[in-house]
């Protein structure tokens, strides 16, 4: 606990606790539409946090993170589809498959000295390559998709049924909301703690200057691989959630580059390399998108939503290039004190 809040001003800590408690209470007030948007926010925050580990903290650009969503979703989805195994068991192969794929791409890329844009392109190429393979892989349904059986949307409100709903991830939306919200908080805590350890500082060193990091005794390849693997696993968790929440999986949509881009926009908008940037960015962009959807329906002009979305993104990057969170943090006086200040 101590190192979790070390250096954080008291009011920032209380503010954070309040926000989290409010988020946990949200299903008591909101249902239906709002809840489904909140689920989307938390889901994107999880993916954003995962991408942020790799790019924001370890400095390795990936534009193919949809690959890990897809692998996570298909690993757990296929187990459920073929053997009836639930999501929490499916999480294990999801972690293994995504982690192994991350390690493979990282190892190939870093060993051959591929950096920056070139590495990013390698990640896209792998995502696209796997997408096409999955399109032609009959066991998981190929391009015609895989559908998970939806059942008991409404459950009895006794302890056993609720526990069962959480265990099988079959139930009403608030079950999914609590799972993804807890996942988001867990990712936040994990990354926060990680960034206070040797691993976290080594990532920062590698991000800032690889040669300097190496000269200080850091095995750059090992720590970069670790970043990719951890990031891939966190993303795969999002993928497992996606599979059981959406129940329909198409390679074309799940591995699509649009999905890779969607998950990183929030991070850049929120503040890359910060803990709350991915969360703030995910909430801001999702609600912006929803608001624009409604406006678009009013005006009934196709494309208006995404056009405005693009303009909003340009505006943010022009006026707050470091993202919203560093600016908001200063505004609220919640900047972290350096331990020695």
């Amino acid at each position: 606990m101590r190192s979790l809040f070390e250096g954080v001003p008291a009011r920032a800590a209380w503010g954070l606790v309040c926000v989290i408690v409010l988020l946990y209470l949200a299903p008591l007030v909101f249902g239906g539409y709002v809840l489904s948007v909140l689920i989307l926010c938390c889901y994107l925050a999880v993916l954003g946090q995962a991408w942020n580990v790799m790019m924001g903290f370890a400095g390795q650009l990936s534009l193919g993170h949809a690959l890990y969503i897809g692998l996570g979703a298909y690993a757990s989805g296929a187990l459920f589809f073929h053997f009836g195994l639930g999501p929490w068991i499916g999480l294990i192969p999801a972690f293994i498959v995504a982690g192994a794929m991350g390690a493979l791409i990282g190892w190939l890329g870093f060993r051959f000295g591929i950096r920056g844009v070139y590495f990013a392109l390698l990640t896209i190429a792998f995502a696209e390559f796997v997408r096409i393979l999955f399109d032609h892989w009959g066991w998981i349904g190929g391009s015609s998709g895989m559908f998970l059986l939806v059942q008991n949307r409404n459950i009895d409100m006794d302890a056993a049924s609720i526990a069962n709903a959480f265990w099988t991830l079959r139930g009403p939306n608030w079950v999914f909301y609590y799972v993804i919200l807890t996942g988001m908080v867990a990712c936040l805590v994990t990354v926060r703690l990680l960034m206070r350890t040797r691993v976290g500082y080594y990532w920062l060193a590698i991000r800032e200057d690889q040669e300097a990091a190496q000269a200080m005794g850091i095995n750059v390849l090992r720590y970069k691989l670790l970043a990719v693997v951890i990031s891939a696993m966190m993303t795969a968790f999002g993928g497992v959630f996606y599979a059981f929440y959406n129940n329909t999986l198409y390679p074309e949509s799940i591995f699509s580059i649009d999905r890779s881009i969607e998950l990183l926009l929030g991070v850049i908008i929120g503040g890359i390399g910060t803990l709350f940037g991915p969360i703030l960015g995910a909430f801001a962009l999702t609600w912006l998108g929803e608001g624009l959807s409604i406006t678009q329906e009013w005006f009934d002009i196709a494309g208006l939503k995404l056009l405005t979305y693009g303009v909003a993104m340009l505006a943010i990057i022009l006026f707050r290039p470091a993202g919203l969170w560093p600016w908001l943090r200063r505004l609220l006086g919640m900047e972290e004190r350096r331990p020695d200040a």
Partner: peptide
Amino acid sequence: KPLNDLTVE
């Protein structure tokens, strides 16, 4: 080659 975004410490 300072690690620019980090503090000296």
